[in-house]
Amino acid sequence: MTALAQRYFTDSFTITYDDITDGVYTEEEEAAADERCIGLVTDVGLVDDKSFNQASWQGAQEGAEAIGVDVSYIETQNSKDYAANIGLFAGAGCEIIVTVGFAMGEATGIAAAEYPDINFIGVDMWQGEALSNVAGLIFNEDRAGFLAGALAASMSSTGIVGQVLGTNLVPPVQAFGNGFDRGARYINPDIEILKTYHPGAIEVAFGDPEWGATTSRQAMDQGADVIFAAGGSTGNGGLMEVAAAATAGESVFCIGVDIDQWYSVPEAKPCLITSAEKHLVQGVSTLVVMAAAGELPSGNYYGTVGLAPYHDFDSVIPDDVKATIDEIAAALNDGSMETGYSFGDE
């Protein structure tokens, strides 16, 4: 364990300092090492969730490499520790702190006011009142969901599709889910959509792969032949259940979320036709570089969204379906088409 980690480590979280060399520092040397660093704090959940947290962490790493500083993360174990975990990086002298997840919004705002000389990047955090040292990285998840729904409806043979989602207490999850509904019905107004949100609190809704698997199985048993799974490890469990069914000979497809899960959840490859992506890596790394240059945009900063490549299913998806998806994506991007989603529709 490094000297810096020893100074701040407690049982309430996991902390790693990958790029700080092990050894003994004088106080002066420690201060110099601490001064140039980036810290990332997750919401309750693991950094290697193969989805949202993992992509945010990768973006922080790429941004840190671009500006030549050390980067570390803390995995929050309990929501009561948000402020303390942010404070650890502030106390270590980190110039940029990335906080990940809607639920950390309040703690991030309070910390930004307490530490005005630190730049904060809040991933999935809408900024109602702009603070000069906070950029809220947000996305039009409804657009990505719309594209996923349009593809799902186009590929469904039964006329029934399913959604396995994290809690609807989180606005981006609502946006994904509602956007999917609208995209599916844009293609087939009569399509049946089996949509299920996790019934638990935020602390558990994204870390329940067993529930995700069970819910996917229930949807397939009711005739759904395309499943959109969006909800961290919960969604990953849903994807893997559909993949197991596809491997067993069922004619079913699945769609991942947040990043291209072809790579992050290879177990889903037997069914994974695409993923509804938020370009988190690009968004976080871009804001890190901007912050280091003294150009952090205050308020809300929109990252881009889209569908991941079709990979092994490219030849399975008809050309006319691909063309339709491309046309919808272009129209959403240039503003000539709107999903119609507003927060609170769910």
Rank of each mutant, 00 (worst) to 15 (best):
Y8M: 09
F9R: 15
F9P: 02
I20N: 10
T26Y: 02
E29L: 11
A31Y: 04
D48E: 14
D49K: 05
Q54P: 08
G59E: 06
A60Y: 10
A60P: 14
E62W: 07
G63Q: 06
A66W: 10
I74K: 05
Q77C: 01
Y82C: 09
I86M: 00
L88P: 00
T99I: 06
V100D: 02
E106D: 15
E106Q: 14
T108H: 06
Y115A: 08
D124C: 05
W126L: 14
Q127S: 08
G128L: 10
N140V: 12
L151E: 09
M155W: 02
S157V: 06
G159N: 06
G162P: 13
V164C: 05
L165S: 13
G166L: 03
T167F: 11
N168S: 14
N168P: 11
F176V: 09
G177V: 05
G177D: 00
D181E: 15
P189Y: 04
D190F: 11
I193Q: 03
T196K: 14
P199Y: 10
V204S: 15
F206M: 05
F206P: 11
D208E: 05
W211L: 00
W211S: 11
G212L: 06
R217I: 12
D225C: 06
F228Y: 15
A229M: 08
G232Y: 10
T234K: 07
L239Y: 03
A245I: 02
A246G: 10
T247N: 14
G256T: 06
Q261W: 08
W262N: 14
Y263T: 14
V265S: 12
P266A: 10
P266C: 12
A268Q: 03
A276D: 02
A276H: 08
V281W: 07
G283K: 01
V284W: 08
T286Q: 13
L287V: 08
E295I: 11
G299K: 00
G303T: 04
L307K: 01
P309G: 04
F313L: 05
K322P: 05
T324G: 03
T324C: 00
I325D: 01
I328N: 02
G335W: 09
S336Y: 08
T339I: 08
G344H: 11
